[in-house]
Design a protein around this nucleic acid. Structure first.
Length: 727
DNA sequence: GATATGAGATTTTTT
DNA sequence: ATCTCATATC
């Protein structure tokens, strides 16, 4: 492949980025500017023009999907073998370093990787045992603080010494114990997968040098999302040559809450002198109208690197705006437009994405799609590998792989029920802790009648099961076979079959899917072990499980949508308080800017049509029901917007009788009528209050009258009398 | 030891 | 509104 080929395949800026000599390179890649393309061709160029050996290249991404796409593209463009090239996510790369160097942090090779849920179990136990259960200490909050500490590479001493408040001192105690327990359990949490490799590189020059000479050329995707520890990892690996290519977009930094440090991208040039900077500003995705609208929104943020996205794709259609009365009409509006647009434009269901700020919003939308018979898939929410039956069965696998994993052992010791009660389990756990053995060994002791008050018969059944399964694993049976035997011998399937409810049916389906999952894994990696499978599923993201080819509409959070594109995008729930999300009545400038970047990310997912919806009224388990429009809507230039359709026709007819007395309907709105109240008007007669706009003097009621349809009435003039319902 | 019942929290985004 | 967890009861 010669230089001309690159010139033909890339635009001038991309070409400039791709053909830089090895050395620090920072690519500001605006949304849709061909970032993956630039990265993959850069790799190809390093190999073909600088004779770089593929095994000396490491490319890091955040999701398996991104890594997979890069590998696929490389396979297409590279003539040389690329198999020795490493394309990995940060976390799986970290896991690999730890598998290869586990003894340096006093772990064993067969360690488990704990999800948030499992980490929380450990923390919860610590809180209970140490009696730290006060008002401001809860497992999730503690886990969050510890996680951020690990992102910042704070060890337990450093953390404790800077703990000022009583709460932080308590957390320091928990942090210390948590790390100790994780080691006993032979388990890492997600943050450890970066923390410990950096620790190893800090302490062991020889190990660091080994990886440095192995990975002489680094490429990092989504650099704006890296946290401090990830940045340290990159810096550790970069040698004198500093062949580090980072690609990112400060405007798309949306993981600050997870420790992502936007200053990493801002300070890169300082940390790596002589960095070449290239900006990719030509967008190949969206219409000019969409780009103009998005640029105007993001322009409200301060301290960003200025970029000017442009496209040659033409003006396109205006953005379509719709204010809905509530979530139901929002869902209805969307389904209606999907149906219509699909017909008119010959689009597939998979061309549509519905985006929202919080997962909880998917419910109402889902309901709408179900009733209108539109196929849909939800990314995220309750994830497959987090479903109870899947977690149970994976726990069996984990016990077989890592017998020290007490969290897994305790999860399955009585699942399915084999008559081992809480008291017995508690006694075994206590005994094991006192004798410094894992719970599984504790069970062996129980069988030998060594534990007081524990009858051995039922424990023996459990132990026999584990022994049998261990035997199967040791024989080296293929992974799918092992999984099937677990399901069979544990009687997990049998119990569900007996249950025979729609619920159990669904669980059986999931179990089948799990077996199919192991089979496909085995197919991809012949001879795959349970260890490898567990690692893969532990590090899978929501988006990794998403199949973009199935013909269904995709529902997902704005966060999940990053990196994707769709011909038609709906951004829903554009309400002040929900998006931007404001939790405690207050939002800091930094938080608001991150919300705005999220809006920018959402808008720039759209190729041709961008719909923006908000609800005036939204139900929530707490209470704030009436919402103003999101401030982001006001930041979109009026001439890029159009009111798409008369919203009235999408508003559902009110249900009669009004849902009086139902939870949450009686909002304290002084002087007005409750939604659903029956009222009497002098001219129009009896009607139902649909919604309320404005407040006090300017309050307007939307009332539906059987003969006269919907009317907007100012409360202060309308002289309405209450018939039924509440004020 | 298993099940039924009620209190209580929950929902921001995720590797 | 729904799920989880603790306590009461069989």
């Amino acid at each position: 492949m010669d230089k001309d080929k690159y010139k033909k395949l890339l635009n001038p800026k991309q070409y400039e980025a791709v053909t830089q000599a090895p050395g620090p390179l920072l690519i500001f890649a605006g949304a849709g500017s061909g970032k993956t393309r630039a990265l993959t061709y850069r790799i190809a160029y390093l190999i073909e023009n600088y004779g770089v050996n593929p095994r000396n290249i490491l490319a890091v991404t955040f999701t398996n999907k991104a890594a997979g796409e890069m590998k696929e593209r490389l396979q297409q463009i590279l003539e040389t073998n690329f198999l020795s090239l490493t394309v990995s996510t940060f976390h799986s790369f970290g896991a690999r370093i730890l598998r290869e160097n586990h003894e340096l942090v006093a772990y064993r090779k067969n360690f488990s990787i704990y999800s948030e849920e499992e980490s929380n179990v450990v923390i919860k136990n610590i809180i209970k045992e140490k009696n730290l259960d006060s008002g401001d200490i809860n497992p999730k909050g503690v886990k969050y603080v510890i996680g951020r500490a690990k992102d910042d590479m704070l060890d337990i001493q450093a953390f404790a010494s800077q703990a000022q408040s009583p709460r932080m001192r308590d957390i320091a105690i928990i942090y210390t114990e948590y790390q100790k327990r994780l080691r006993e359990l032979n388990a890492f949490d997600f943050d450890d997968l970066i923390y410990w490799p950096v620790y190893i590189f800090d302490k062991h020059d020889n190990v660091r040098e080994f990886y440095r000479s192995r990975y002489q050329h680094l490429l990092v995707d989504e650099f704006q999302d890296t946290n401090h520890s990830q940045y340290r990892l990159i810096k550790h690996l970069s040698n004198e040559r500093k062949s580090v290519t980072v690609v990112g977009d400060d405007d798309q930094s949306i993981y600050g809450w997870r420790g992502a440090d936007i200053t990493n991208i801002m300070n890169f040039e300082k940390d790596f002198p002589n960095t070449r900077v290239v900006k990719l500003e030509q967008n190949y995705r969206s219409t000019q109208t969409i780009l103009t609208a998005a640029s105007n929104v993001i322009a409200n943020n301060r301290g960003r690197k200025v970029k000017e996205l442009w496209t040659s794709l033409g003006e396109g259609e205006k953005l379509r705006r719709l204010e809905c009365s509530d979530e139901e009409s929002e869902a209805f509006f969307i389904t209606d437009h999907v149906t219509h647009l699909r017909k008119e434009e010959g689009l597939r269901f998979s061309d549509f994405a519905i985006l929202y700020r919080t997962n909880a919003q998917s419910r109402a939308l889902e309901e709408g799609f179900r009733t209108s018979g539109i196929p849909y898939v939800i990314v995220g929410g309750t994830r497959f590998y987090e479903r109870m039956e899947i977690k149970d069965l994976l726990a069996y696998l984990r016990v077989l792989v890592n017998p020290d994993d007490n969290v897994a052992t305790l999860r399955i010791i009585n699942v399915p029920k084999r008559g081992i009660g809480d008291v017995t389990i508690e006694r075994i756990a206590k005994y094991s802790q006192l004798n410094n053995i894992n719970v599984l060994e504790g069970c062996f002791h129980a069988v030998e009648d060594k534990i007081e008050g524990v009858s051995s018969a039922k424990i023996k059944r459990f132990i026999d099961l584990i022994k049998k399964l261990e035997g199967i694993k040791r024989r080296g049976e293929p992974l799918p076979t092992l999984m099937e035997k677990i399901i069979k011998f544990s009687k997990y399937e049998e119990v569900l079959l007996q249950e025979n409810t729609p619920e159990s049916e669904a669980r059986l389906d999931n179990i089948k899917e799990l077996v199919a999952g192991t089979a496909s894994f085995e197919h991809r990696y012949p001879g795959a072990t349970a260890e490898q499978f567990l690692e893969e599923v532990s590090l899978l993201t929501d988006i990794d499980r998403w199949d973009p080819n199935s013909d269904a509409i995709t529902l997902m959070t704005l966060h999940s949508a990053k990196g994707l594109e769709f011909p038609v995008v709906f951004i829903t729930g554009l309400e002040e308080g929900l998006f931007p999300l404001i939790r405690s009545g207050q939002i800091s400038k930094e938080e608001l800017e991150e919300e705005r970047r999220l809006m920018y990310v959402g808008m720039t997912r759209a190729k041709r049509y961008l719909y923006l919806t908000n609800c005036r009224f939204r139900r929530h388990y707490t209470g704030s029901f009436f919402h103003q429009q999101s401030r982001f809507l006001a930041e979109i230039p009026a001439d890029t917007l159009t009111e798409s359709t008369d919203p009235q026709m999408f508003i559902k007819k009110p249900k009669l009788p009004p849902r009086e007395g139902r939870y949450g309907y009686e909002e304290e709105r002084k002087g007005s009528f409750a939604i659903g109240a029956d009222v009497l008007h002098q001219k129009y007669g009896a009607g139902v209050v649909l919604s309320v706009e404005g407040q006090g003097e300017n309050e307007i009621l939307i009332v539906s009258f059987p003969r006269h349809g919907k009317k907007r009435l100012m409360t202060k003039f309308a002289k309405l009398t209450l018939i039924k319902g509440k004020k």
